[in-house]
Amino acid sequence: MDVLYFAWVRERIGLPREQVETSAVTVADLVEELKAREARYAAAFADLSALRVAVDQELTEFDAPLAGAREVAFFPPMTGG
């Protein structure tokens, strides 16, 4: 699936998007897989309360299932308007 990063999450991880092969069942499982990769991922995902997630471009929660998902995006709380 495609994993996208925005704002400081993108800066901390160092790329805007990547293809990830995963069998993670939930968003939280995917986060654990990413954190185990490298320190920059662990740093970006250190505090999940500071992050938001969208699955297939819909805001959701970290316990959301990933079955059938094509795109997961991680970003800080939004500051529109």
Binding site: W8, A54, L59, P76, T79, G80
Partner: peptide, 23 residues
């Protein structure tokens, strides 16, 4: 709703550097 449910992120740039605007 636009403020906190639309996927925009603001970053402020000054002579001293740049900082993401916190929600």
């Amino acid at each position: 709703y636009l403020k906190s449910r639309a996927p925009f992120w603001k970053k402020e740039f000054t002579r001293d550097g740049a900082e993401w605007v916190a929600a």
